[in-house]
Design a protein around this nucleic acid. Structure first.
Length: 300
DNA sequence: AAAACGACCAACCGCCGGCAG
DNA sequence: TCTGCCGGCGGTTGGTCGTTT
């Protein structure tokens, strides 16, 4: 059970767990290279960190994944693709400037499981990854692509990644004018400039017709998918017409949730003064906000 | 009853970017 | 600018346990 340099490997004992937990409680997380020494454990820094993050950390939820957790994993995995943003995931800035939202290679590859886990309280990235590999991957591909072939694990076949199309935002884009008080306007269906009814977003308090629970991933997924597939124009809640814009619609949908955003524990609040001098509180999922390129891209 | 098989998941490995010196 | 250390990630392995033959 000893690896290089005589450090212990393999399963952790109850005593090691106790020492590690005690050490983290005393010194806090971080400085992992010091942890084995401080805790008096003959383990490498990585082993200590992993044991803490995946097992000992408080509030880790164990046991079966709930249906809504599984649903969230599937949706986010579909949304984020197979560790890659499409290279065409770009936003058009001012005067034809194209900004590519594709991050560097490392970011592409590194953030998916942790991002998904971040939306599942108590679940670790390792949990999510294991669950995907042992349960969901086979369901998604097993029958049609013969995953159970006995060969070594291979890269997950690429999902169909829903790609937002290039778009232009303007500074006076109407979402900046939306006030939370205008949420009630959503009670009547919005209409596009062409008179089309805009698909309404379900309220958290009123479940979807098919009884599926509302989740944040629906916002982006539905918004992007609808617009990408239909190519329809839409208007935002303030009634201003905009070109067909998946991201814009997403933003509209986010604001349509009004008060509900406040209860979401991973939401950032922005304040924006509109042209009438009104201050608006804008609530936004921090990860998706970043995913879309942050304020620079959204507001440009 | 026991061997073979398969599912599950904790743990390890290798890689990479950030950062300080 | 270079180098080495650190933290953090996805991919993969291998031990354990339940099920099947």
């Amino acid at each position: 059970m000893e690896g290089k340099f005589g450090v212990r490997k393999g399963s952790w004992t109850a005593e090691e767990d106790f020492l590690l937990k005690k050490c983290i409680e005393e010194y806090g997380e971080g400085k992992w290279h010091l942890v084995p020494l401080r805790a008096g454990i003959n383990r490498c820094r990585k082993s200590c960190r992993l044991r803490w993050l995946n097992y000992l950390r408080p509030n880790i939820k164990r046991g079966e994944f709930a249906a809504d957790e599984v649903d969230m994993i599937i949706r986010l995995h579909k949304l984020l693709g197979n560790r890659q943003f499409p290279s065409s995931f770009v936003l058009a800035g001012e005067e034809g400037e194209i900004r590519n939202l594709k991050r560097d290679k490392r970011e592409d590859e590194a953030f998916m499981w942790s991002l998904i886990a971040g939306r599942l309280p108590g679940r670790t990235a390792n949990d999510v990854k294991n669950y995907w590999n042992t349960h969901l991957k086979q369901k998604q591909f097993g029958q049609s692509q013969g995953v159970k072939t006995g060969c070594k694990a291979q890269t997950t076949p690429g999902f169909e990644v829903i790609k937002p199309q290039a778009r232009t935002f303007s500074k006076n884009f109407a979402w900046m004018q939306v006030r939370r008080e205008s949420k009630r306007e959503l009670d009547t269906p919005s209409r596009s400039s062409a008179g089309q009814e805009i698909p309404s977003i379900p309220s958290p308090a009123s479940p979807l017709k098919n009884n599926r629970t509302f989740s944040w991933s629906n916002l982006l997924e539905n918004s992007v998918k609808d617009d990408y597939m239909n190519g329809t124009s839409c208007s935002n809640v303030s009634g201003n017409s905009e070109k067909d814009e998946p991201v814009a619609k997403f933003i509209d949908n986010v604001f349509a949730q009004g008060e509900a955003m406040e209860g979401y524990n991973n939401t950032t609040a922005l304040e924006e003064e509109d042209e009438h001098g009104c201050w608006n509180n804008l609530f936004f999922d921090v990860d998706l906000w970043d995913l879309l390129g942050g304020e620079d891209n959204i507001l440009t």
